[in-house]
Simulated assay, not measured.
Amino acid sequence: MTRTMRAVVAPVAGGPEVLEIVQRPVPSPGPGEILIRVAGAGVNRPDVMQRTGALPQPTDAPDIFGLEVAGEIVETGPDVDGSLIGTQVMALLKGGGYAEYAIAKAAHALPIPDRLSLFEAAALPEGLFTIWHNLFDRGRLTPGERVLIQGGASGIGTLALQLALANDAEVIVTAGGTEKCARLEAMGVHAIDYRSADLPAEVMRLTRGRGVDVVLDILGGKTVNNHLACMAPGGRHIGLSFMTGVIAPIDLSLLMRKGLWLSSSTLRPKSDAEKAAIGEEVKSRLLPLLGPHKVRPVLSEVMPLSAVISAHRLLESSRNIGKIVLDCSENSP
């Protein structure tokens, strides 16, 4: 194993052009940790927010970007089973994924479902942890219920809609443009073009006037009231991010009349123990649903580490359908 590695950092906040590939020492795993030779790293919205300065980097996280990877365990910490060396895993990280080697907590690593590629696996951890915690735990989605997923063409959206369908829910998604909507409807959901449709009216039409039981929201801001208007009594509104604003004017009378529940959560600030507990639920509840002819990640692009600036530009353009993954292997350009 080499002593140095390529890694992606941003010396200053700004646009994609501030991202730089630098040489860094290969880190060593501490107690409870594993060192992964990274094959692929997922590109996520929180990476963009960290780059722009909108989402401060946690003080205990490395300055290297990347919150999820897949690859091979090449070293273990002093209290981690050494027989894991050589095992292929996917893992949720505090940071450090855009690199040839990355440190993960052993308790935040997951086995790779049968016959999924390492690039497919790299697209999964952030989504699996987020979706279990928000859609199934906090959102309490159950078979037969209806869910509205904003941003259905995103990496999180394409994974969430498949997992909801696998749980026998009726799924409605939003996307921008007829091409994206057609792709998503081919996956078995109702797709609404947010650019042209009246969202509450269309949702109420599709649900025969009842509304949806759960909303998975990435927009926030003034769109929240539109969501409340198309929710069923007792519905649960879960905020994942706030792309249109962090301040949401709320019609409290709608909240009261329908008995609605609003919540929001994010993974990165959670304790290691909380993430480990979510990981155990993911292993038992979601991983059995993944694999050939089942739920599998939708890959928009696999791009070399050297193209990280282009990867961020693609994500910010919202032209992607599915997840963008960086090829971080040592032989990648």
Score class of each variant (00 low, 15 high):
Ile73Tyr: 05
Ala122Thr: 03
Val43Ile: 15
Leu93Ala: 10
Gly234Gln: 11
Ile112Arg: 02
His237Pro: 00
Ala277Met: 13
Arg3Cys: 00
Val89Tyr: 02
Ala164Leu: 07
Gly157Val: 01
Thr2Lys: 08
Gly176Pro: 11
Leu84Met: 13
Ser317Lys: 14
Ala166Met: 05
Gly177Glu: 06
Ile21Val: 12
Gly82Arg: 11
Gly127Gln: 14
Glu281Leu: 10
Pro288Phe: 12
Arg37Ala: 09
Ser253Arg: 11
Pro125Gly: 08
Val173Asp: 01
Gly139Arg: 09
Leu260Tyr: 11
Met243Trp: 03
Gly209Ala: 06
Gly239Ile: 15
Gly322Glu: 06
Gly234Thr: 11
Gly220Asn: 14
Val302Ala: 01
Thr244Pro: 02
Glu185Gly: 08
Pro62Gln: 10
Gly245Asp: 12
Asn331Ser: 09
Ile103Phe: 09
Val189Gln: 01
Pro56Gly: 07
Val212Glu: 00
Ser83Phe: 04
Leu255Cys: 13
Pro62Trp: 08
Lys323Trp: 03
Gly95Asn: 13
Gly157Met: 03
Leu219Met: 14
Gly157Gln: 00
Arg205Phe: 01
Gly32Asp: 12
Pro249Asn: 08
Gly152Gln: 03
Leu116Arg: 01
Glu316Ala: 04
Asp168Leu: 10
Thr266Gln: 14
Leu135Lys: 02
Cys181Phe: 06
Lys323Asn: 03
Gly220Met: 14
Phe65Cys: 05
Glu330Thr: 14
Leu228Glu: 06
Gly322Asn: 07
Gly152Ile: 04
Ala102Phe: 12
Pro11Ser: 13
Lys323Gln: 04
Leu159Ala: 10
Cys328Val: 12
Leu254Asp: 05
Asn134Ile: 14
Gly188Ala: 07
Ile112Asp: 03
Leu255Ile: 12
Arg236Ala: 11
Pro297Cys: 08
Glu316Gln: 15
Asp327Lys: 11
Tyr101His: 12
Pro46Phe: 10
Gln150Ile: 08
Ala102Ser: 15
Ala232Pro: 08
Arg115Asp: 10
Ile247Leu: 10
His293Glu: 08
Leu262Met: 15
His237Ile: 01
Gly155Val: 10
Ala104Gly: 02
Val173Lys: 01
Gly86Arg: 09
Asp114Leu: 06
Glu330Met: 11
Leu116Ser: 03
Ser306Gly: 09
Leu287Asn: 11
Arg115Lys: 12
His133Ser: 12
Gly221Gln: 15
Tyr98Lys: 04
Ala229Val: 02
Pro249Thr: 09
Ala109Gln: 09
Glu301Asn: 14
Arg296Asp: 00
Leu326Thr: 11
